[in-house]
Simulated scan of single mutants.
Amino acid sequence: MPSLQLPAVASRPAPSQILRDTRVIAVLRATRAAAYAPVIEALLAGGVFSIELTLSTPGVFAELPRLQERFGAGAEFGVGTITTAAEALRAIEAGAKYLVTPLTDPSVIAAAVEHDVAVYPGGLTPTELFAGWSAGATAVKVFPASVVGPGYVSMLRGPFPDIEVVPSGGVGINDAAAWIRAGALAVSLGGPLIGDAFHGGDMKQLTERAVRLRGLVDEAGE
């Protein structure tokens, strides 16, 4: 009787060196993409260089090339809240360095893998997360991460020892280090990091939050 063969894992786009070094993704949501630049400048000053621009903000595709030109190679910009392959391809054409999704859609992952663009598909259950990983995800996004907590990483690594994880959704500055110590590739933060920056908040305080977050994550990763 012939032995059963598991399907071959797709080629896997690698995470950027920026993400490997900093291990933080800042998630930006605003009423318009033209409001991004001052917030990005404050984040970069605080050592957060990987920026996710969500499609829930109008004008992302038009603004992305301008942001890349303004901030250069010192930052990397990804596009998040992608739910279709068409959105994935448009983001890649606009120059996105990585794609982030709130769900596990094989067509989105396939589009990223085909163009060798890092992709972080969202899921929560072991079935969803392993499906994304098997399809060639750079890492799987545990979403919403606050539902399960950092211990979930070690639980996943029991049956799936090689899986890479990025928690997102409810990750705070104070618990980011616990996720890194648990083995997460990086952490993804929106509101807890950005705060009121898009609503008249103090950009200096945003930079201070970014510095604090990087310090905690860097220490946890040593």
Rank of each mutant, 00 (worst) to 15 (best):
L44P: 04
G136M: 01
P167T: 06
G136P: 09
V211D: 13
S11L: 01
P38C: 01
E87D: 14
A42P: 08
L67D: 09
T101C: 15
G169K: 01
I180C: 06
M155V: 15
V48H: 11
D202T: 06
P144H: 14
A210Y: 14
L129I: 12
P13R: 00
P102L: 06
S16D: 01
A197Q: 12
G149I: 03
E208Y: 11
A33K: 06
Y152H: 13
I18D: 07
A45E: 15
V140M: 06
A94H: 13
G122I: 01
I163G: 09
R214P: 15
V79L: 00
V39R: 04
V39H: 07
A86T: 15
F71M: 00
A220Y: 14
V79G: 08
L156C: 04
T101L: 14
Y152K: 08
F49S: 12
A73T: 15
L129T: 10
I92L: 12
R157F: 07
A75S: 15
T127F: 08
I82T: 08
R23C: 05
S56E: 13
G215Y: 13
G201V: 10
T84I: 02
V171Q: 05
A176I: 02
D196N: 14
D218F: 06
L89H: 12
I82Q: 06
A184V: 07
Q68I: 03
M203S: 13
F49L: 12
F198D: 13
A34C: 03
L216C: 12
G132Y: 10
V211G: 10
